[in-house]
């Protein structure tokens, strides 16, 4: 079966810094894959290469077998590659409801329409359904700029889900979210469609052990280890480079 998302020898350098060098990653449909590594390991840069925000120097990205290495960010989104941002990046003046409805209109390719209201019944119901699933319905009418940080993180996911992605890249979805809420956030992610391929960058090893089925460890821009959470945790190189230092 073709992988949902695959990178082959993906590399990018900034001057003399090899931010990402030769990373191969295969994400099958239904993956729950964590990307971990110490700060500066190149995780976010790697995700930016996957989404098209950055262009690689070498290597390829394939989405369901199709080479998308040269495709623009919007073109990749249209093919089913969704993402959230590490630093919350929303529309501060739109309400939660409006932002999700806008994302739905964009998914349906209707943002050129200038005479019909955004708030059509079908879209309204679907936006309410997405917000409800994430427990964000109480904030529906509030401008995103006024939401608490944890709620904004949830809205990051809501906007990505509205695009109905087949592959979803989550850059530290629970960063800055209080511990109890971050578990809840991941429980929400667990309820996502089984065939959705999920790749998430996460620092909290408890969350990784609990929710990831496979883990890739990056260090110095390259893949250090890959396997199940238990295998990775037992890998001496990983302990040295990442876990050991964290526990020290």
């Amino acid at each position: 079966m073709t992988a949902a998302l695959a990178s082959e020898g993906l590399s990018v350098s900034f001057g003399s810094l090899h931010a990402v060098s030769g990373v191969d990653l295969v994400l099958p449909a239904g993956a729950r894959h964590a990307l971990i590594g110490p700060n500066g390991a190149g995780k976010t840069t790697f995700v930016s290469l996957l989404t098209g925000a950055l262009a690689p120097d070498r290597g390829r990205v394939r989405l369901h077998g199709e080479d998308i290495t040269r495709a623009s960010v919007p073109a990749r989104v249209k093919r089913g590659l969704g993402r959230t941002f590490q630093v919350t990046s929303l529309f501060p003046e739109m309400t939660a409801f409006e932002a999700v409805a806008l994302a739905l209109a964009e998914r349906d390719g209707l943002t050129w329409r200038c005479l019909r209201p955004l708030a059509r019944r079908g879209r309204r119901d679907e936006a309410a359904e997405i917000l409800g699933r994430l427990g964000a319905l109480p904030q529906a009418g509030r401008p995103l700029g006024t939401l608490a940080y944890g709620q904004q993180r949830v809205m990051e996911i809501a906007l990505a889900l509205a695009g109905r992605p087949r592959v979803l890249l989550l850059d530290e979805p629970a960063a800055g979210v209080p511990a109890g809420e971050s578990t809840r956030l991941f429980e929400v992610l667990e309820t996502l469609p089984a065939d959705l391929a999920l790749l998430f960058i996460e620092h909290d090893m408890h969350l990784v052990r609990r929710f990831a089925r496979t883990v890739t460890v990056m260090a110095g821009g390259a893949v250090l280890a890959e396997g199940s959470p238990a295998e990775v945790a037992a890998d001496p190189a990983v302990r040295e480079a990442y876990l050991g230092r964290r526990r020290a």
Binding site: P74, V77, S89, F91, E106, T111
Partner: peptide, 9 residues
Amino acid sequence: ARMAALGTD
């Protein structure tokens, strides 16, 4: 940037 991530050209 967020509009691009929603798929908007």
